[in-house]
């Protein structure tokens, strides 16, 4: 056998698979106690009752909803921005500015997350409290979403906006790649038909709507898993409400806050591994959906 290379390479590949497998197995195994004891109410009920010796009860509904809520806000805000950014970079920006913008987008994608957190805590939270939440509550207080009196900058909304900023480069990368790979002839053909630039862009955007869908799905997955930046601004309290002006929890910030003291309690480690399993389940389901869509529509992109 001259080909010694294959076993070496294969063992590296196998090792990665092994780690991934171990991760999934461990999480599942560790979540069994809480899931078998509480069943579905683990995710449908809210409460974080820790007690040494006494009854423990963990329900992560509030955190789960917080994750979904912040991710939804993030995607809703990031979508128009990343579509515009893609169009602007490909279609409108002069060459020089385009290079700068592309650099800035890549930089946003890779910037250490803790810097986002520090910035969110220092600038974004207070800014949103003063210039968004208070005015909205003041003028549209009758509307259920804004009826809560804003009291702090550490809220679901702040986490959502910060996440939107963090996933924008990621979504932009996907949309931009698709948009810029539309053949020239289409564009020229459209102008030849006498369309305005806006009309042409709208038609072209319709051609990449599958990529936009993939971007939404994968952006959602990204937002759901982000931990450090979110736990710095989300407020870290358990409560269910439709008001985005309230402090809340996300699953990842719940883990960041509680894992350090979990092993004091009998059931809490299991509850946190269970939360992690569910978080991973969400991300995975979203990723699988996104990748499946991407494959179906043969969309390619690079981070």
């Amino acid at each position: 056998m001259r080909d010694w290379l294959r076993p070496v390479l294969a063992s590296a590949a196998l090792l990665i698979l092994l780690v991934l497998g171990a991760m999934i197995l461990f999480l599942t195994y560790k979540s069994v106690p809480v899931l078998s004891r509480e069943g579905l109410s683990f995710i449908l009920d809210s409460g974080w009752i820790a007690s040494e010796g006494g009854e423990e009860y963990y329900g992560i509904a509030a955190a789960l909803l917080g994750t979904l809520y912040t991710s939804a806000i993030a995607v809703a805000l990031a979508l128009p921005v990343s579509v515009s950014l893609s169009v602007f970079v490909v279609e409108m920006a002069p060459r020089k500015i385009r290079t700068v913008l592309e650099g800035a987008i890549l930089m946003m994608a890779l910037l250490p997350t803790v810097l986002y957190g520090l910035w969110g805590l220092t600038y974004l939270g207070p800014f949103l409290l003063r210039y968004v939440m208070c005015p909205l509550h003041g003028s549209l207080g009758w509307f259920p979403l804004f009826s809560e009196e804003p009291k702090t900058g550490n809220t679901i909304l702040t986490a959502g906006v910060l996440l939107a900023i963090m996933i924008t480069p990621y979504m932009t990368a996907i949309i931009k790649d698709a948009y810029s790979s539309i053949p020239r002839e289409y564009r020229e053909g459209l102008y030849a038909l006498g369309t305005t630039r806006a009309e042409a862009i709208l038609v072209l955007l319709r051609m990449v709507k599958s990529s936009i869908a993939v971007a939404v799905v994968l952006g959602l997955g990204r937002a759901a898993g982000e931990t450090v930046a979110v736990s710095m601004v989300v407020g870290n309290t358990m409560g269910i409400s439709i008001s985005p002006f309230r402090p809340g929890y996300t699953i990842s910030s719940l883990i960041a806050n509680q894992f350090g003291n979990a092993f004091l309690y009998r059931l809490m480690p299991s509850a946190l591994y269970g939360s992690a399993l569910i978080l991973m389940g969400i991300s995975t389901a979203i990723a699988v959906l996104g990748l499946w869509l991407a494959r179906r529509w043969s969309i390619k992109w690079r981070i």
Binding site: G225, T227, L279
Partner: peptide, 8 residues
Amino acid sequence: LLEIPTVV
């Protein structure tokens, strides 16, 4: 693996 939250 890419989608696994890093806290996990």
